[in-house]
Nucleic acid binder design. Structure first.
Lengths: 337, 337
DNA sequence: GTGAAAGCGCTAACAC
DNA sequence: GTGTTAGCGCTTTCAC
């Protein structure tokens, strides 16, 4: 492999000139620049990443911690990862893939051996131990998700509270006065998953504000689980005319259960979902949904971390506003005027 | 961060001694070894990855090229990636994630800037341009999948020809004399996906050997597509009593179509699938299947590449034998004695 | 069994 | 606008 010295010799300039042509950190005359670039091309020169990192303390590598827990929604995870890799490349960075279950040790290993310039940590939960460790590192980091204590780290996520509120407001606007909430399985709440709680809070707040009566049930995404949860909602609220579903796996089952009992969607019951768009679009009744803006979050995370590498301070918790995607599953309640 | 010099000073030894304690490349007295290790621990020393790579020309990074094409089966892809990351860690390597669509340029970039010690390239297709490039690199590589011309690179994959044959042989053993084959959509064949062709060849060979009559149809995984393909098979082979399905997306639809027309599985029609186990197990009628041994292939790929880093030669095309998983979807034909 | 020192290929002062 | 050079933190001869 050609080295920077080879290029310098070939172009008849000094090593530093080649370096500066590459970094753009000082002014170079047009002809020198051209000559150097030509030599670089002709020799097929590429800077040695290790040497660069040693001398410049920049690796041009971004560490990405992904959850390999299989209860994560795979298409969404894929969109996150893909977008992060592509965005990183736009900033001339490559992506080192770390798994959730290396936990804090993995972060320390990569950080202290200077393998990456920055960290993006996905799927951060309420009581996650990693934010506290991340703040102690030499490298900046961004969280996707919002822990109880972000420790001053920038966070990016969908504004789940606003999403819950948006769903209710859409239904209230259609005239619904009595709305159910079908959440994730109980364990998700017990695990302290912050987005589940935030969604519910937003839903409740909006219901209070609009004088809408509600009932909430966690839900296992099986036929039995869905039937039981639905029955519980109806028992508590006999006038139930709409349900907000924050449980992508329950959606197809719910539609089937309703179809089987002859309840029309949205004729007899309106449905709004919060979750991946993929899970909402292809159903027998295409769902009105607040979709997970994975690409937007991913880009934002990369941008944030890159800005911090350029020295910008950032302790923002950035919650992206929900976008309600209107489809066929919502309509005014059956007894509407 | 502590450097190797700090450790040496703290332990009262030379820098090279510390280095050799770490690498184990020369004999160290027990007490020196202990003293050095103690210092390492107390100072929280970690070797600087860049310095190491510069001096030792070893990065301890494995580059993994994954297809982000969404027509790939995500759960299977996930299992590949997860297993590769975990296996790499067992060999003290981290994983740099490259995407398919950076193509040859991505390989050259990472290889020539010495960012990785080796490459694993997933989802290699028949006429893939990358093998030819990979052979020219300083780093060894392994392919997952088998191109027409592996260029001498080691390949690991499921033996799809044997898988096709195994399915037919299982059915022939049950007494079926007339077996259909439902393949992936036509485009997959046109794209030159080698595993699709290999499966079909294995299926045909076994059918010839057992004197079983066959019919083959590509299949779009929609209701219309499945109905049409099934009708075509039956028209060509009125005595059809079993179908081999190499199209995971068509499976649920196929079961539904058969159920709707009152055809029992396996009573009226036996089904065998080739594809991810996830797609075969949870169906109304759990499928007899040749599953994709993702973990096994992934481990094999990492092991192969690590061996090559230790200097071993390897130009093997390693095709893992299919494992037929017996479930409820196969039985002797209806008119069996 | 251990130490001294010459690089590895770059970046970024510090010259001019 | 360009060149010289001192490191960056390791690995690995070479020497004893």
């Amino acid at each position: 492999m050609a080295t920077i010295a080879d290029v310098a010799r070939h172009a008849g300039v000094s090593i530093s000139t080649v370096s500066y042509v590459l970094s753009g950190k000082r002014a170079i005359s047009a002809e020198t620049d051209a000559r150097v670039r030509r030599s670089i091309r002709e020799l097929g020169y590429r800077p040695h990443a290790g040497a660069r990192s040693l001398a410049g303390s920049r690796t041009n590598v971004l560490a990405l911690v992904v959850p390999l827990r299989s209860d994560m929604n795979l298409p969404v995870l894929m969109r996150f990862v893909t977008t992060i890799v592509l965005s990183a490349r736009e900033h001339d960075h490559d992506v080192l893939l770390l798994t959730q279950d290396e936990g804090v040790d993995g972060l320390l290993r990569v950080a202290e051996s200077a393998m990456a310039d920055a960290f993006i940590v996905m799927d951060v939960e309420a009581d996650d131990p990693r934010p506290a460790v991340l703040t102690g590192l030499a490298q900046p980091s961004v969280l996707i998700g919002v822990p109880d204590d972000p420790s001053g780290l920038p966070c990016v996520d969908l504004d789940f509270a606003a999403a819950g509120a948006a769903c209710l407001e859409h239904l209230a606007g259609l005239g619904h006065r009595c709305v159910g909430f079908l959440g994730p399985p109980e364990q998700v709440y017990l695990r302290g998953t912050s987005f589940a709680r935030r969604t519910l809070e937003g839903f409740r707040g909006a219901a209070d504000a609009h004088g809408v009566r509600t009932a909430e049930e966690p839900c296992t995404p099986t036929f039995g689980g869905v039937r039981a949860a639905l029955a519980a909602l109806r028992e508590r609220r006999p006038g139930l005319s709409a349900v907000v579903v924050h449980n992508e796996d329950a959606l197809p089952v719910l539609q089937e259960v309703l179809h089987a009992e002859g309840a029309g969607v949205p004729g007899d019951l309106s449905l709004v979902a919060i979750g991946p768009d993929e899970s909402a679009e292809g159903l027998p009744v295409p769902m009105t949904v607040v979709a997970m803006p994975a690409e937007q979050i991913a880009k934002d995370a990369v941008r944030t971390v890159m800005r911090r590498l350029d020295g910008a301070e950032d302790h923002t918790v950035r919650l992206l506003p929900p976008q309600l995607q209107l489809r066929a599953s919502t309509a005014p309640p059956p007894n509407a005027p």
